[in-house]
């Protein structure tokens, strides 16, 4: 009996995700329809990839909320260059751009030691601003044949981009559990003094995770284009709102040193199922945003409260 209890506790996120999925499928007639399921998987893919990047940042005990704007900027660049230079080059440019964004953000945090929250807040607005400038504040739409073709490759209701997400998650899992670099992130996030005493290059590691997030944000933005076919500076404005709960609920904490790629994967699946279920209950779009905001708030407050409750101030 005790072993069952432990198993349930350890696997609570996947179990919760599957339970809600099953319940919704049985009780709601629109949920299990291919149209809805495809949308669900597409959402999981796009946000999931970005969430994996964010996981790297949190593991080190850092924070970066600019992922939404990086998605927007890279997606805009992608869509703008797509007609002229073709799919692969456009994708490469966007991915590199994502890394560059990460380099800049990481520079201010790792080298200048400025508080990550202010830097990423500023960069979020800066990247969004750049995106709006280069697109002239109008969305860039393009039903490019390659994009269309990709969006049609499916396994039943599951789009191929979902498998891309799985691939990214697996690569991340490998890096985080099987490489020295990945394990170093856990040490840095877990106890930075130990990291210093071991002679790990803390600054370099910190810088790198921002670059990883930038890359993932760019990749996620491109994936989103296979669904939306249109990019603007205001894309993924609610990026942090969606992604932070996915990662925290999955089991990676703000304090760092805990969590991982597979945990995030399940967190992404669970939260997207919840968001999808919410939309089934014909809640007004704004009410949904409000509920999402409250969920985020609850998660943040619960996490911080548990951390600090033994102190009086």
């Amino acid at each position: 009996m005790l072993r069952v209890k432990k198993a349930v506790m350890d696997y609570r996120i996947p179990l919760l995700a599957l339970s809600i999925f099953v319940i919704m499928s049985l009780t709601n007639e629109y949920f299990f329809k291919p149209v809805n399921l495809t949308g669900l998987f597409e959402s999981i893919s796009a946000y999931g990839i970005v969430a994996i990047g964010f996981t790297f940042v949190l593991l080190c005990g850092q924070l970066d909320i600019s992922m939404g704007s990086v998605m927007a900027l890279t997606a805009c660049v992608f869509m703008m260059t797509l007609p002229t230079i073709g799919f692969i080059p456009a994708m490469l440019i966007s991915l590199v751009l994502g890394c560059v964004c990460g380099v800049i953000t990481g520079f201010f945090v790792a080298t200048f030691r400025l508080p990550p929250f202010i830097v990423s807040m500023t960069m979020q607005l800066a990247y969004k601003g750049i995106a709006l400038t280069i697109t002239g504040s109008t969305p860039v739409s393009n039903m490019h044949p390659t994009l269309l073709a990709i969006s049609e490759v499916m396994l039943g209701p599951i789009p191929i981009t979902f498998f891309l997400f799985l691939l990214v998650a697996l690569v991340a899992y490998y890096v985080l559990t099987q490489t020295q670099y990945g394990r170093n992130l856990y040490v840095i996030g877990g106890n930075i003094n130990v990291a210093d005493n071991l002679g790990l290059h803390v600054r370099g590691h910190l810088w790198s995770v921002f670059i990883v997030q930038g890359f993932c944000a760019a990749l996620g933005g491109i994936v989103m284009m296979t669904r939306m076919f249109s990019a603007s500076g205001n894309l993924a404005l609610d990026g942090p709102l969606n992604i932070i709960p996915m990662v925290i609920v999955g089991g990676t904490a703000f304090s760092g040193g805990k969590g991982g790629a597979i945990q995030t994967l399940w967190g992404v699946v669970l939260m997207n199922i919840i968001y999808n279920a919410m939309s089934m209950f014909s809640l007004q779009a704004n009410m949904q945003e409000m509920v999402k905001g409250l969920i985020l708030l609850l998660i943040i407050v619960a996490d911080k409260y548990m951390e600090n409750r033994s102190y009086k101030v």
Partner: peptide
Amino acid sequence: VTRGGSGEAFLITLA
């Protein structure tokens, strides 16, 4: 409730 400093304030007020 969270005995927060500026880091917590950022996240909380973001939400």
